[in-house]
């Protein structure tokens, strides 16, 4: 009998704790005007959990490297800065910046710099109390893979993913929100400040598509806005929210998902309009200002 009670209490407790993991929505079916497409309006309710995922910085750097952009050492945040941040929010934001810098150096095969930045990221993880997310052998793996670009990218990526997974599973939304935001800002800072004249059209496409990525990031922050620290992060990125809200979107673009030669293809027109030169310059200014606020402890 006691065992049954304990088990019931365990399940109840676990369900209560799990329900803190994300937002709840209900999807009420509604008729749609489009042919043979099932559509549902997304509404807030208590039915299901929603998680907003943010692509990691290494994906952006992997992409821009193939897009022809070159490595710029002066864009990195110097490792000497790591000691001067005291609050958990500042440390989490700076951790996000250094994690993106580490991914940048690894993607461009800057081996010795990668090792230095890995050391800094590891020290900051200690200060944030998240070092248990790291595999003890990670530093050794990095040293052993210094001559192998693919392995270096994989090992540094793995460390970032371990931290993200650890924070997700431990409901550390404030730290995760800060790290994901700063990581995204730093990757945008590096890309926008690396653009030369006549940049590659694929790189410009990836930059404009960040409207959707930012929306996911912003939705994640809004989902956890009960935390005063997350409120501060929302205030920090609010100018970007306004900027992206003003970027035209083609809501009539049709999407197809068809099978061709045994493989599915997700097709359709672009939904986000191309950015003009002025808009790209404005985005660069906004990102640069936010990064400056983070590194000058002005959050």
């Amino acid at each position: 009998m006691k065992k049954q009670k304990l088990r019931a209490l365990f399940i109840t407790g676990t369900v209560i704790l799990f329900s803190c993991g994300g937002d709840k929505t209900d999807n009420t079916p509604e008729s749609d005007t489009q042919d043979s497409v099932q559509a549902e309006v997304i509404k807030q309710n208590d039915e299901q959990t929603v998680y907003y995922q943010i692509p990691s910085p290494d994906e952006m750097f992997d992409f821009i490297k193939n897009g022809g952009l070159s490595f710029k050492q002066d864009l990195l945040l110097p490792i000497e800065n790591s000691e001067k941040y005291n609050t958990a929010l500042q440390q989490s934001l700076i951790f996000g910046i250094y994690s993106a810098d580490l991914a940048y150096t690894a993607a461009f095969e800057e081996y010795q710099t990668s090792l230095k930045y890995f050391g800094t990221v590891q020290k900051m993880a200690d200060r944030l109390g998240i070092s248990s997310a790291y595999d003890a052998s990670t530093a050794e793996r990095i040293k052993n893979n210094l001559e192998n670009a693919d392995s270096l990218v994989k090992v540094t990526g793995d460390t970032y993913f371990s931290v993200v997974d650890y924070l997700e599973q431990n409901n550390e939304e404030t730290k995760l929100g800060a790290i994901a935001t700063a990581g995204w800002i730093e990757s945008m800072y590096i890309v926008l400040n690396s653009l030369e004249n006549n940049p590659n059209s694929d790189v410009l496409q990836r930059i404009k598509d960040q409207k959707l990525t930012f929306e996911n990031l912003y939705d994640y922050l809004q989902q956890h806005n009960h935390s005063p620290q997350v409120e501060k992060i929302i205030t920090l990125v609010e100018p970007l929210n306004e900027f992206f809200n003003n970027i035209e979107e083609n809501n009539d673009a049709k999407t197809t998902f068809t099978k061709k030669d045994g493989k599915f293809v997700l097709g359709g027109e672009d939904t986000v309009a191309p950015l003009s030169e002025e808009q790209t310059a404005e985005l660069k200014d906004l990102v640069n200002n936010i990064r400056t606020k983070i590194i000058e402890e002005n959050v």
Partner: peptide, 14 residues
């Protein structure tokens, strides 16, 4: 838990 539904919102790039 059984009967539960969850959503993951992701971005896929061209």
């Amino acid at each position: 838990s059984k009967g539960q539904k969850s959503e993951l919102t992701i971005i896929v790039y061209k």
